[in-house]
Every structure is written in structure tokens, then in C-alpha cells.
Design a protein around this nucleic acid. Structure first.
Lengths: 342, 342
DNA sequence: TTGTAAGCGTTATCAT
DNA sequence: ATGATAACGCTTACAA
């Protein structure tokens, strides 16, 4: 509640002198400064960031959008580590994190929300439907607001994105299975629209191709990154093709569902069917059949996104380009040699 | 960038009229309002929350402190669900969430950080050392800033806390083990200082007492909620007492560590030793030995904390009182009947 | 080295 | 129903 004005009165100086003293300007008498600082301490002063940013146009807040209304993001096993990394770096750089949660804004867009709060930059972590690039997203991308998206291909003047190397990651999984002798390899995909899903599908096809396996549409189903759909997908594939011996899934969650479904259908894992996931979530290693999976380097994604954003904020002239983080195949026990033909 | 002033010029009205029109006051001519709103839309106007809150003293931001510098909170398996619930309710009520991450503030306290940002209220989720009530915390508690802590016993005019019924939860675990015939029940505690740790310890003792089992200090070790310390604790207990047949742990993370350590020491779980955890984290059900544990209702904790905070914000006269959320024993497979004596 | 004064974009008070 | 104007707490030329 105590303002710069009161300090001024207290020490018998003008507000501008007080301001300068407090902000460490050089052109202020050491004695004056000392008095000001002491008065500030005594009066229990703290600056009002609202007042300050009203004039400086800086808030030292980084905006954060993530998750849609259904999937509330904090719980997503994938994003926890991304968030931790973001939090860490943003904090080091002297920023706080403003999570956009308010649901009472009807006509709001990413852009208007950012402008209202005056965030210095923003990070987008979208899930599900929100990943489809739409007019709101292109609007943000062209707004000039420093912005980095994760997994969504936004590119603009002061806007870019970070993603895993989904193509190569998925390809590694398929090559690994092929090396184990599998020839009938099914793919439980994410969705048909998002870039990451498409990249993973293409990685699958490329892996097949390299192994000289022809592509069979009957072995493809979408699981929409959800347990329920993945179950369905496995059942459908099993119905269409009795000879399938391996499943690669576009997420660990779907891989867990696949394993459960296979077991329910009387198919042992990895004896009769191998399963590989994608993400390497915490649960993967401790799962009752430790999950072989393609690891996304989540910390690195968060780190890269934040560093990139901070650079964009600092340098208005910078033309940012997309960043791709490598994936790694983590071999555990859910994938094994293909069963001998009977 | 466009301000209320420009709209005023555009429609030929005064700023105050524009302000009233935009804010839905009743004393404004419908036609004027229409013109104003249209102009606002055309000029791509959005209000500056900084300017607004400078005069209204409201920011519609809820502050959030959590985790110390080491344990970065977002990753804590326990708090994810708490956060989701907070996020949901805060958003419904029309607030955004300000996560205090800035590390470049030397002399900052919880109170000054809240005042600087002008948050309307704040939620505290502290871990580890931060849980000890210190002068910073009592300062906040007496500051008049609406505030709800989780697991930390803060009580003030506009300040209270939410916690699980740790005492009864732990007691249930011990009673369950006693019912299975265990008499030598070890306790891997959290720490010696935090209220939740103490409550759990007391619950353990009360459970023993009810079962007519006398308390043996040799069966108590602290694990500090960390894998490494829990391992050490188990080893120490094993060294001191060869007849122990059960371990109750103050967290699931420590329970996992206990199981691993026991198995390494050649002791089968639950055949030769039973283990019960606390929390019911996601991994508990899918663990290779599905973990029997005391479930904390995390969503409910987050929900209660947020609801309480919103009430405190709305009603300055409200005297809040602490809220306790019940725990539930989830029976899985890591605890079984006590082995027969040999 | 210091003070004066304008201005940031709102809301709120008081006339009119 | 509307308009001047002060005020919120701060930074920043510009002047002294």
C-alpha cells in the first residue's frame, strides 16, 4: 500500500529521485539513495507491477496456454516434465508464469488474452482438437507477440515451434521390430490431422519401406491418444488380420491399452505380440511388462521452447526457426523376437 | 494498443461514456453503447488489465507458490491432480493463475511477491523444507492477503489450510495390517517437523495402540519422502529387528523404494513382508506388485482449497477454518497375511 | 544530482 | 445520459 510518493515525502525528495534511487540509476547521490532505500524498507515498500508495466510495457510475465477444457493438462503425463523445464528457465530469467485459466471470456482469443494481460511472450502447449491450426492460431502467429508452440507448427515473425523428431523416432521403432523378425507390424496412430501424428505415421511407413515390408492399410488404426480408442483399434486390427505380430503405438497410454487388450484376447506380450509405445512416460519403466518405447526428451523440449522464447523477446529482429529434438528408442521388455511361424 | 480514448474519438463520445458502455452499465443510451461496441470491435480493442487493476485494486489473478528450487513441483506425482482441480475451479470463477517462478528477487517474501503482482489471493503448495512454518509464512498469514495453504497449518484472518486426514489414514493402514496378523510393524516416516508427517506418525502409534501392540522405537525411521532415504531406512530397520513383517510408509515413493530394497535383501513382498504406501499415486496400481496404499483425495484437496480461497476473497469478513479431507485405504497386493512363525 | 511534469489506460466522482 | 477531471503508482524526458 505504501507508494513511491510517501517515500518521497519521508525523505524529503521528489518521486523521480526516489524512483531512480530504487531502480539503481547511477546519477543519484549515494547518501540520498541510502536514505531512500532505508525509508523503503521501513515503510515496507514494494513496487506495483501494474503501475510499472503500464508505463514500461513490460510485465515480466510469460503466458502459458495448455490443455483444453476436458484434458486439463497438468495431469497429462507427457507435459509435466515439459512444464518443469519451462518453469525453471523462465524463473531463472526473472519471469513469472501466467497460466491462462479464465473461462469467463467469451470472445477471447489467444491474442487478445495475451494483450490484455500484457505478457511479454507466451508458450502454447495444446492437446487434442486444439492442435489443429485454425484462425485463432494463425492470428496469434501474425500478432507480433513473442510466441513458441510445442508440437504445433506455428511460424511467424516472432513465433516458432519446438517438436520431437517424430518421424525418425517412429522409424526407429519399426526398424527395431523388423530387426526382430516382425513382418506384420500394426500401427495405432494418434489422429489424422495433427502434424505430430502425421509425422509418426510417415516414420512408420518409412521404417516399413526400409525393411522391404509393403504397406498394408488393414494394419493402421487411429487411437486418438486415448485408452478407449486404442482398445478398439487393436480389436479391429485383430479382426482384420490374424497374422499381426507387432504393434507400434503413437503414445504410451495407447501402448498400455494395447497390451491389456491383447492379453484379454488371449495373446501374450511379448511372446505372441510385441508392443512399442511412444513418449516414455514415468509409468513405462515400472509397468508390469516394462515398456519398450520411443522416448521424447521432454525436459529438452521445455528447455528449448523457453530459451527460444526468451531470445525472441530480447531481440525483436530475430527470425526464429523451428527446433527439432531427437528421440531415443528405449529397449525394455514389451517387444521381443517375432514368434516362429506355425 | 488501441485504447478507450481512441474509441471515444471515433464515436464522438467521452472516455467515461465509453468505459461505461463497455462495462455494461445501465445508464447509457442503447444506441451509444452499440456504436461504442462496434467501434471497439473494429479497432480491435481490448482493455489493459494493468491499467484497470491500478484503479480497481483487483487483478483477477490467483497466485500460486509451489515446490522449492530442487523439487520443481510440476513433477511431483502428488500435486498434479491437486493442480488440475485448482486450475479448473479458478478458471470457472474467472481468474487466471500466476505461478511465482521468478528467482531474481533477493529480498522477496511470499507477502511482497503477492503485493507486487497484486494477486487477489494465493495458494501455497510447499514441499520439503519449505513446509516448516517460518517467519515468512507467519508474515503471510497475518498479511490480510487471502490465502489457503495445502498441508501447512496456516491460520489467520483471511488465511487457512487444507489437508488430508493423515492421522486416520495412517491408522487405517496399521489396523489393516494388525488384522492380517502382523505384530512387528515398521514405520518409514516423512520427517520430524512437518505437521503431516507428525500426524501420520501419530496415526501409526494410535493404530498400534488399538491393536494392543506396544510401540518400539527400533521400528521407526524417517525417509524424508525420498527414495534414497527410504532405502536406508529399511536397511536400518532390518538390521535392528529381524522379525519385522510389515512396513507402512508415509508416501508411495518410499513404499516403492521399500519394496525394491526388501527384494534386494532377499525378502519377498508380500510373502515375507507386507508394504503399505501413502498417497495412491498413478503408478501405484500398475506397479509390478500393485501397491496397497492410503489414498489421498487429491482432486478434493485442490477443490476445497480453491473454493475456500474464493470465499475468503469474496467475503472480507469471513473467518475461515481448516478443512480436512478423508483418506481411504486402497487394498491391492503389497500387503498380505503375516507369515507363520517358524 | 535533483525536481517538474507529462503520460501510461483505466475507473470513479461529481457535475451537468 | 453524458462529460470533465482526478486518481491509481510508476517511469521518463526535460529543465534546473
Amino acid at each position: 500500500m505504501t507508494s513511491i510518493k510517501q517515500i518521497a515525502k519521508e525523505v524529503g525528495a521528489s518521486v523521480s529521485t526516489v524512483s531512480r534511487a530504487l531502480n539503481g540509476y547511477h546519477d543519484v547521490n549515494p547518501k540520498t539513495r541510502e536514505k531512500v532505500i532505508e525509508a523503503a524498507r521501513n515503510l515496507n515498500y514494494f513496487p506495483s507491477s501494474a503501475a510499472r508495466s503500464l508505463v514500461t510495457k513490460r510485465t515480466y510475465m510469460i503466458g502459458l496456454f495448455f490443455g483444453d477444457n476436458v484434458n486439463s493438462g497438468f495431469e497429462d503425463p507427457f507435459f509435466q516434465k515439459v512444464l518443469s523445464a519451462i518453469r525453471e528457465l523462465v524463473g531463472d530469467a526473472g519471469y513469472d508464469l501466467l497460466v491462462f485459466t479464465n473461462k469467463n471470456k467469451e470472445r477471447a482469443t489467444y491474442t487478445t488474452l495475451c494483450r490484455e494481460r500484457g505478457v511479454d511472450g507466451t508458450i502454447l502447449i495444446l492437446t487434442g482438437r486444439e492442435k489443429q491450426v485454425n484462425s485463432q492460431l494463425t492470428d496469434l502467429q501474425n500478432s507480433g507477440i513473442p510466441c513458441v508452440a510445442i508440437d504445433v507448427p506455428l511460424e511467424g515473425d516472432r513465433c516458432t515451434y519446438v517438436e520431437s523428431d517424430n518421424f525418425l523416432g517412429m522409424k526407429k521403432a519399426v526398424s527395431y521390430l523388423a530387426g526382430l523378425g516382425h513382418r506384420q507390424i500394426a500401427f495405432i496412430g494418434g489422429d489424422e490431422v495433427s502434424k505430430i501424428s502425421l509425422d509418426r505415421l510417415n516414420g512408420y511407413r518409412s521404417g516399413l519401406n526400409d525393411a522391404g515390408i509393403s504397406y498394408d492399410p488393414d494394419l493402421i488404426e487411429m487411437g486418438y491418444y486415448a485408452k478407449e480408442y486404442a482398445e478398439l483399434a487393436v480389436k479391429n486390427i485383430l479382426k482384420k488380420n490374424k497374422k499381426v505380430t507387432a504393434f507400434v503405438c503413437a503414445s504410451d497410454v495407447m501402448a498400455f491399452a494395447a497390451i491389456e487388450t491383447l492379453q484379454e484376447e488371449g495373446c501374450s506380450v511379448p511372446g505372441e505380440a510385441s508392443v512399442i509405445g511412444f513418449d516414455d512416460v514415468n509409468e513405462a519403466a515400472g509397468y508390469h511388462i516394462p515398456l519398450t518405447t520411443v522416448k521424447q526428451n521432454k525436459e529438452e523440449i521445455g528447455r528449448a521452447a523457453t530459451e527460444q522464447l526468451l531470445k525472441i523477446i530480447e531481440d525483436p529482429a530475430l527470425s526464429p526457426s523451428p527446433i527439432m529434438i531427437p528421440c531415443e528408442l528405449i529397449v525394455r521388455q514389451s517387444a521381443a523376437e517375432a514368434p516362429k511361424k506355425t
